[in-house]
Design a binder for these strands. Structure first.
Lengths: 106, 106
DNA sequence: AAGTTAGGTGACCAAAAGGTCACATGTCAA
DNA sequence: TTGACATGTGACCTTTTGGTCACCTAACTT
């Protein structure tokens, strides 16, 4: 399995995206902390976290018996750069900003 | 299934990512053109294209009996914005640029 | 009209992924 | 050192996904 395959497969599951959201909101969470936020057994969460690690989307630092998790944004940026070149980036940004603006108005 | 679920699931398959790469390189290809580039039966490719359409990653325009395909970069941009805020974007960009620079040197 | 070309549908099967559990290791605290 | 806490592993089953095929409709060409 290639690197980018691991990244995309890791992102394909909603539970794993939720875990990334949690780490985006507050980094340095332990595995137990993450488990508490997800409706699933401990084992399921641990499995998902492992997939995220192997994809390089999450990096860990050990502290005693705890395992602290951090979001790594680099693979996300590489996805962006794969299909959005510098030239069209400006147009897309404008479009997305417009989308946000319209949603705020409602 | 939610919108973003469709997008991430669509990106999870290597054949579908190849199709996006092809459209990124040159837009407006017909289904037959895409089929010719992929090692798979016509039916398999058509199925993959359908998944990309339903995710909004590809938009189509009909011209007679042909179906022309175009890459839509907006969902990709939204993935980026979900986990990379404006604040850290500069750091990540610098990191990624450094990565490219190092790879060019070899 | 007849033949050819472009594309669409539903069924089917094999492979992969998601989730749970029994069991195991290592770390802290009293 | 005894017990509680944090995490890791491999087996197992169910569901989902990827790919192919037989069969179909619609449009262009001559």
């Amino acid at each position: 399995m290639t690197d980018d395959d691991r990244v995309f497969k890791a992102l394909a599951d909603p539970t794993r995206r939720l875990l990334l959201d949690l780490l985006f909101a507050r980094e340095g969470r332990s595995l137990s902390e993450l488990e508490a936020e997800v409706e699933m057994t401990r084992f399921g969460v641990a499995k998902h976290v492992k997939v995220l690690e192997e994809a390089g989307l999450v990096v860990v630092r050990r502290s005693g018996r705890e395992k602290l998790h951090f979001l790594n944004p680099v693979p996300i940026r590489l996805i962006h750069d794969r299909w959005i070149d510098k030239y069209t980036e400006r147009h897309v940004t404008a479009l997305v900003d417009l989308k946000y603006a319209l949603e705020d108005e409602t």
